[in-house]
């Protein structure tokens, strides 16, 4: 039985797709069979972040509508053997995604022997976001340490607790995790940014990862190589740690404290 993880946030631009891509790659690097699905119908982007945009022939909606077989729409990653991408459709028809259709695709992926299905949710709380979370076993709520992102995350947590299959069936609900992105230990130290602890307290959830603000994230999306594959990046190491925690490993947090600077470095502002 595949484990379905939704990556969601409410607010846009906080790093859902970057996170989906890196978590999918990270799980696949550990030998898991992983499918990552773009639920942002009409605004396909996961393919770009994964670097497979020119190989999209069939998409999620094609599979749901029976235009092709699931196997034809799954794009095999060229870097990692066990990783597959299912692209979002570019259709403007919002009703193209149906609950039955989504369930059928998830069940088929599970039957095909996938270990993990990562659902990259669109922003907002409309149908796409609802369907991305509805069948989830776990949720990674991506949040920036910033007021609007935190508030929207709480709204999403409310929906996860009420409008999901697990909530409706009353069997323990969806397992929720927070993942902070664009974290700046330096700004936290100066009192300009809320800390991991602050966000954790407000939302009352455990933190599965803290990804530092990093220029590597833009470089990664420019190149179509998920940031976790960058060998020299703090953001990559932070995503690897998050993947380890999702797999139940107890890993200490890195990159959450400002590195101690010497006297001269401080004097020179470096």
């Amino acid at each position: 039985m595949a484990e379905t993880i939704v990556v969601t946030s409410g607010k846009g631009g906080v790093g859902k797709t970057t996170t989906s891509a890196s978590i999918a790659v990270g799980l696949a690097q550990r030998g898991k069979r992983v499918a990552v699905i773009d639920f942002d119908i009409g605004l396909r982007n996961l393919d770009l972040i994964m670097g497979c945009e020119r190989r999209v022939v069939y998409d999620f909606v094609n599979v749901i509508q029976g235009d092709c077989q699931l196997k034809q729409a799954l794009i095999k990653d060229r870097r990692i053997e066990t990783l597959f991408v299912l692209a979002a459709s570019q259709t403007r028809d919002k009703d193209a995604l149906t609950s039955d259709g989504v369930k059928r695709v998830l069940d088929e992926l599970s039957a095909e022997g996938f270990d993990y299905i990562i659902c990259d949710s669109p922003a907002g709380i409309e149908k796409g976001a609802h369907l991305a979370m509805y069948f989830a076993d776990q949720a990674v709520v991506v949040v920036n340490p910033e007021v609007s992102s935190v508030r929207d995350s709480d709204r999403i947590l409310g929906l996860l607790a009420s409008r999901t299959q697990r909530a409706e069936q009353g069997n323990g609900g969806v397992k929720e995790h927070l993942l902070l992105t664009r974290y700046s230990p330096r700004r936290v130290a100066t009192g300009e940014m809320m800390s991991v602890q602050d966000v954790k307290e407000i939302l009352g959830l455990d933190v599965v990862g803290v990804v530092p603000e990093s220029p590597d994230v833009l470089q990664a999306s420019n190149a179509g190589v998920p940031v976790i594959l960058n060998d020299n990046s703090d953001a990559a190491r932070a995503y690897e740690d998050a993947v380890a925690r999702l797999l139940g490993e107890n890993v200490p947090f890195r990159f959450v404290e400002e590195p101690k600077k010497g006297f001269f470095a401080r004097l020179l502002g470096r």
Partner: peptide, 13 residues
């Protein structure tokens, strides 16, 4: 530096 993080936290709480 302005310590606005605590203001943000209180408002959000």
């Amino acid at each position: 530096p302005p310590k606005t993080a605590s203001v943000a936290k209180e408002r959000l709480r």
